[in-house]
Nucleic acid binder design. Structure first.
Lengths: 358, 358
DNA sequence: CAGGCACCGGAAAACGTTTTCAGGAATTCG
DNA sequence: CGAATTCCTGAAAACGTTTTCCGGTGCCTG
């Protein structure tokens, strides 16, 4: 071997040829494998890819050579000719990673590890950064894109002329011709209400976050509607909108206890708010759940599981959403592009902050 | 799932030539640009890459053609010949993304968006999954790797024969010849103590997490040592190890209040623990910070900023750690490989749970 | 024994770039 | 005016694969 080019002496970049038994996925190429196995590159390729037109004995020889050199095929070259990079881009605007991470994990599950790798790009809510990332990803010839928003409201479409399929997760695209996957906030709220009603609660209040969030509206209307179907009304007359914070949870609870001291359950629009609610209930010596039941939303584990008592809540099934996004993306890559908004159901997580009355 | 896929009629692979004004980073290649500009591929390449050997007028023509076709160079092909993929792998085992996300963001900052893209892989603490991801990343010819651990204790090295440089972040590698970047737990603890002492506190207790964590040990010993330098001792005689949970924070605080009712500050080993501490202090009607000051560790925003009162804490500077990791990786890629463990200083975040005594 | 067939392996083109090298035109100099 | 120099452009090789096609065996069949 080594013959090839002894130019190494001069060049400043000492990319010298590796020794024969090069460990690690170094610069060993299919040619090296072929040479060691005593076959041509073409045959080596076919042998390793399980093509039928190669004798078993030959194949074995090639495979042995490959692992002896710990050959690892150059995915870039493969992608160049197959026109598939085997990568997808996950474009998020979610600072905390609260939503992206579970979705990423779901997606990783759905794509096999050795099939697809994921580029993660955080646009940080900045539009120009998003365009930059988009350019970069397209330039890398990703096979598809998953766009994860920071909040469950519609976001501008990336556009319809994009050369690769796109799936929007969590934040739907404003363009209904795109395919979007979102959590079922209405359904989740109904679950929460059903749970409380089933436990004998009748005077249920709802404290939730910023009214400009679609999620807040959906959860509130889901709650109101479902209560109505049970022949009930919201304690405190209306949903209390505010902000997604513990502080608001505390403030709203104090106010609420003034207005209707006889309530027996509070449905909080998020786990953060629920923490604030719990805090004030303790302060006011109201026992949870025996006097007042509390249920949250999101199943943000660090908040919900560590609450006192541990918080019943509605899980968003984000990981499943990620898996689904990946599956839909796969389908789209294979030519089966969908459109519209698809909804992923929530899941009730029962802990100790809710219990049957009496 | 509408129309679209009904192309099945004819060829299954409809890779036809695009129309001239193809928008989106489609299949438009440098050849197309060259043709439109009336030059050769070679010249087009040089023109776009700012090579000096091309006339200004020609360059302009090429550039115009390129943007007219919205040409976007195929990074795979580029990587194939330059031997640089322009990608790095971020290999994490950190489920929640509590540590990975800030580090990822720091790394993204340090790499320019259009220079380097990041593959994010979550091994979920599973060793074989990690090997798989590693294989895949090497196969994709990443230019480097950042390995992010889930806890700040040494982890097994990926090995020294890896063909690409590796930087370990948060969890150091067990092999001292690797380069690792970690947070300064000892220094952070000293900061916390200094802060409390400066505010006139003298009877300071320390409640912290799992004793098997290096972080717990480091923070504890940092606290003890620094107190000693101030001529003080830990209230409650020793650091109280337990678990990284609110529940332990609550339990330990109750116990501590029994043993030394006169303490005037609690240094918690994490923000979670601090939340538990605050909870019990309220319950016992001890005013924070006037009677007892509380300081946490981690600056986990959702916990610290929303506490009542907002929690002073020690920030881990994870984003900076990520930036630094990226810089070190760059250096290593350029041949300047380092080794050993480098420490990133913490930062004191003052909120309302600490204040001068009296 | 000639022709057909199944089987196996190799040569070569292709993917989309970058880079080296050579050559033509225009300019300058002696 | 011829030669040397500078400037620009293009042809071709290279990167590491996959895939198509073709040719050479050896074997069976007529």
């Amino acid at each position: 071997m080594s013959s090839a080019s002894m130019d190494g002496s001069s060049s400043q970049k000492s990319r010298g040829r590796r020794s024969r038994t090069d460990a690690g996925g170094g610069a060993v190429t299919l040619r090296d494998v072929a040479k060691l196995a005593g076959v041509s590159v073409a045959t080596a390729s076919k042998a390793l890819n399980g093509q039928p037109q190669v004798r078993a004995e030959t194949r074995a020889r090639v495979v042995r050579a490959a692992e002896q050199l710990s050959f690892s095929p150059n995915t870039l070259a493969q992608g160049l000719i197959t026109q598939r990079s085997g990568t997808v881009g996950l474009l998020t605007s979610d600072l905390e990673g609260r939503f992206s991470m579970p979705i990423l994990m779901g997606a990783e599950d759905a794509f096999g590890v050795d099939e697809i790798s994921v580029f993660l790009c955080d646009a940080r809510g900045d539009n120009v950064r998003e365009r930059h990332h988009l350019r970069a990803l397209l330039s890398r010839r990703v096979d598809g894109l998953i766009v994860v928003g920071a909040r469950p409201d519609a976001r501008p479409s990336l556009g319809r002329d994009l050369a690769v399929p796109v799936v929007y997760a969590y934040s739907p695209s404003a363009d209904p011709r795109d395919l979007s996957l979102v959590t079922d906030n209405v359904g989740g709220a109904r679950m929460a209400i059903d749970h409380l009603v089933q436990y004998g609660r009748r005077r249920i209040a709802h404290i939730t976050g910023d009214a400009t969030y679609g999620a807040a509206q959906d959860r509130a209307s889901g709650a109101v509607d479902r209560l109505a179907e049970h022949g009930l009304e919201l304690a405190g007359d209306q949903p209390w909108f505010g902000s997604w914070s513990e502080a608001w949870g505390r403030g709203a609870t104090r106010m609420l206890l003034q207005r209707c001291p006889d309530l027996d359950a509070i449905f909080a629009g998020s786990d953060e708010i629920a923490r604030g609610v719990l805090d004030v209930l303790h302060q006011e010596k109201l026992a949870v759940p025996s006097q007042v039941a509390v249920i949250g939303f999101d199943n943000w584990n660090i908040l919900a599981a560590n609450a006192r008592p541990p918080l019943s809540t509605i899980d968003l099934n984000l990981e499943q959403l990620g898996r689904l996004a990946a599956q839909r993306l796969f389908a789209a890559i294979d030519g089966d592009v969908g459109s519209g908004v698809e909804t992923v159901p929530c899941r009730l997580v029962t802990r100790e902050s809710t219990a049957p009355l009496g």
